[in-house]
Design a protein around this nucleic acid. Structure first.
Lengths: 189, 189
DNA sequence: CGAGGCATGTAATACGTTACATGATTTC
DNA sequence: GAAATCATGTAACGTATTACATGCCTCG
């Protein structure tokens, strides 16, 4: 079935594995990544949370605060974790947009070390294949207009960068002892 | 108003400025960029074409072919060009997803040389600002989980690449004589 | 002779945005 | 005292996906 875009529903659910959060917290967190994955509006964020609650994938705790608006802190349930795991395990379409990758990247690391490595390796082979395809298209160019050629060049640059990033990241993750970045992963799942 | 995502409607309309095409042609063309911008399904592509036709932004020519399915070739009208120009001229939100940039990149070059340069320069300043923001977030890290840190590193790598690409592209476009890539642009609009 | 590409389309449904509505607190 | 941030939510609308439906041709 190769899920990919399947919306913010599971992504939001996945963010709650890190820590319980309110809708507002989620929005703020996602703002930093809006460039890559976009950030849902409150008009879709809150209803999504309500739907997850109705399906018993999350629970709420209402926190009233003096002099400040109340907050509704959502936590993922066991059922939620199971559903999420099933979603994570589904293969990603090879031509899925970049945003699908970043979304899963953020989630995958919260599940298992092996899963993360496997995911990055899978992505590496997909991007490598994609890069090769773009190169092929670029070679058979001509009769292509400027816009397409520019976009093609851009795509190649991005793909090359992603390959380099994947290699260095996989390298850093596989020997986590001397490097500063990966810490909590050293303890595994 | 800062349009950005505003859908495939204008993007498809813009593709027709390159040359008249059928829905199937558009889909095939977009497949190569699906990684970056996604590709609309036929279920939205054909209705979009019908809507553009109804609004007199495009015209159709039905081309029957012996032994093969007929084709419906769409061409943009003068009204279509005007509407498109208005859309192109609208500013893009600074946190608009990457896909919005690539879409406009493909279109912008079909309009005017100056417009393209201006667009790339505007993008450059936006990405530079974004890159700075990410760096700031990265500095104030800790308490950030692995997934977010990875995504942040990835975002920084992509942003840096895009900056480099924008610089070299702007450089190549501003002196188009000795380089092979930009040819038809030398004649300007 | 079946799979996949060519080529078009419709209907049901899911997903998401914009605009609206409320209300207190902090910052300029 | 106006604007931005915090914090939640609903309703109307637009946009896209999936699944369905059709039919011929080509390649293995």
């Amino acid at each position: 079935m190769t899920t990919s875009t399947v919306s913010f529903r599971y992504f939001i659910l996945g963010l709650l594995t890190q820590q319980p959060m309110s809708g507002y917290d989620i929005k703020r967190l996602l703002k930093g990544f809006s460039w890559l994955i976009g950030s849902p509006s409150f008009g879709s964020l809150y209803p999504t949370l309500h739907a997850l609650l109705k399906d018993d994938l999350v629970t709420v705790e209402i926190v009233p605060r003096e002099g400040k608006p109340q907050r509704k802190i959502y936590s993922i349930t066991e059922a939620g974790r199971q559903v999420l795991q099933e979603w994570i395990d589904q293969p990603v379409a090879s031509d899925a947009p970049l945003k699908a990758f970043v979304m899963r990247l953020i989630l995958a690391s919260n599940f298992s070390y092996d899963g993360l490595i496997a995911y990055l390796q899978q992505r590496r082979s997909q991007v490598a294949a994609h890069h090769a395809t773009l190169k092929q298209i670029a070679e058979a160019l001509d009769e292509m207009d400027l816009g397409q050629r520019l976009a093609l060049g851009y795509g190649l640059a991005i793909a090359a960068t992603e390959l380099a990033w994947l290699d260095s990241t996989l390298d850093r993750l596989s020997r986590p002892l001397q490097q500063p970045l990966p810490m909590e992963i050293a303890q595994g799942d």
